[in-house]
Write a protein that binds this DNA or RNA. Sequence first.
DNA 1: TGTACATCAGTGAACGCGCGTTCACTGATGTAC
DNA 2: TGTACATCAGTGAACGCGCGTTCACTGATGTAC
Lengths: 191, 191
Amino acid sequence: MSRLKPNYHHGDLRNSLLKAAIDLVERNGIAKLSMREVARQAGVSPGAPYHHFKNKDALLTALAEVSLWTLDELSTQAKEGCKTPQARLEAIGVAYIRYATDHPALFQLMFSYARDDVPSDLSDAPVYRVLASVVREFDLTGEAHIAATMAAWSLVHGLAVLVIDGPLRHLAHQPEQVMQLAKAVTAHLRL
Amino acid sequence: MSRLKPNYHHGDLRNSLLKAAIDLVERNGIAKLSMREVARQAGVSPGAPYHHFKNKDALLTALAEVSLWTLDELSTQAKEGCKTPQARLEAIGVAYIRYATDHPALFQLMFSYARDDVPSDLSDAPVYRVLASVVREFDLTGEAHIAATMAAWSLVHGLAVLVIDGPLRHLAHQPEQVMQLAKAVTAHLRL
DNA sequence: TGTACATCAGTGAACGCGCGTTCACTGATGTAC
DNA sequence: TGTACATCAGTGAACGCGCGTTCACTGATGTAC
């Protein structure tokens, strides 16, 4: 595994492919990702990836899965140190938007490609569940709780999308401004 | 123009190409749109479109422009009959989300490809200006007005995106549910 | 510890494909006189 | 109204390209005895 001599057998190709794909997606966007380039970047022949992923779609889906759970974890961590529900909500929002601006293409990918994580319930879905748990602290129940969670999610998601791939993209490389905007916008949420 | 005999000169090819492209984008998504297929659909040879659009990117940009102004007009119309600012705001939101669910691929396209319409001011930008004018009725000024407009926009845009290409896509073909959600979510906006 | 063998995870050549774009061309149209 | 000619807006063949995927293969690894 950790030997330095070049191996015929790579040993950890699946992970290397995912890493390469993440790298390429972040650099060139989803549309330009090709299996051949992923293989190239991983230093392997064009056919090799097919021992680990059925096809391109499977690779992209795996990528989405990874990213989704990464964001889930980041937002969970973000709320940890906060004392009030409001603070936790804002922290999640900021973490969410930071992830989006730091990894725009992955962010896009993770929502459009994660096919499995759409239980009609959603409450086990990564990211959503984090938001929902914080919104629950606001003493809402049933429909009201769902609507409030959706509102919070929409607000934060919308801003993220407008910044990374929309009319606000001129802010994409001014993180402080985006964060400021994120806070200002979050303040308009009524729970 | 309106002759039925097949013309060597098409007469209105530019518009036919745009129409064909809209059709194809709506059916197959942005990623699968090809110049050749647009030409094919318009009943013309592969080279013909290049007399009207410099390249594929130019076609897509033109498409985005058209869609953007369509949505601008739809949302302007939507607010017309409404009596209170709140009603106008909700009407715009609903129109916005309806457009997104009716034409998901165009909706995506129009934000990611419209390159010119990003004046750092935004106040002349289609769609944004409609929202901003309604938000202005809430007696906010300066920064507060901008933040409020952004919040409204983010909220509505976020829900749209979650529905058409995200974890809520299972709702994409249940318009009533989406509209209900849109209203419930809009109610969480504090202005 | 050694050997035979199955299985795993690579190679690299090859396939067919549709794409964006160019180009020399030509038929249709509009204009000047 | 007729004719000469420039310009416009098509044709269709051709280019080179990179892609996704397959396949026969082979070297490395693990296992049974």
